[in-house]
Amino acid sequence: MSSAPDTSAAAKLAPADLPRRRFVNILLGTGLLASAASFLYPVLRYLVPPKLPDLGGDAVLAARLSEMKPNTAKTFRFGTRPGLLVETSAGEYRAMSATCTHLGCTVQYRPDLREIWCACHNGMYDLNGRNISGPPPRPLEAFEVQVRGDEIFVRRKQEA
C-alpha cells in the first residue's frame, strides 16, 4: 500500500545500475514468461485435431464375390476414406485408395476405357493405380486383396 522508503535512494540510480534489481527483474521476467508458455502450450496443442484411429494392419470386408462381375468396380469404406475394388475383365481383383492424388476427389472405374478416372480434373490411372495421364502427380496407393470364401478382404500392403 505505502511507498517503499528507499525510493529516494533508488531514484538517484538508474535501474541498470542496480545489479540486485536487475537480477530480481530477470528472475521474475523469465518466471512469468515460462509460466505463460506453460499456459499457452496446452491450448496450442488442443487446437491440433487428434488423428482418427487408423486401420493399421486390419483387413476390411470390401465386397462379396456375388456382388462383383468382370469389368466392374465397387467403392468401399477403408477406415475414414473410400477405397476402390475393381474386377478386371480377366477376373482379377485389384484394390486401391479411391482418393485422387491430385486434389483429393474420389475416383471411379470407367468400364468403357478399362481405366480409373477422376471426374474433377480428368486424371487417369491404370488398373494398378499408376497415374497415366492428366494432372495426378502420384499413383493411387495399392492395397492387398484376399479372397476368403465368398468374401473379399482388402488391407494395406505390408511393408517387406
Binding site: 496446452p42 491450448v43 488442443y46 485435431p49
Partner: peptide, 9 residues
C-alpha cells in the same frame, strides 16, 4: 480422451 489437453480445457 482423444484431443490433446482436452481434459485440461
Amino acid at each position: 480422451t482423444q484431443v490433446q489437453f482436452g481434459w485440461l480445457i
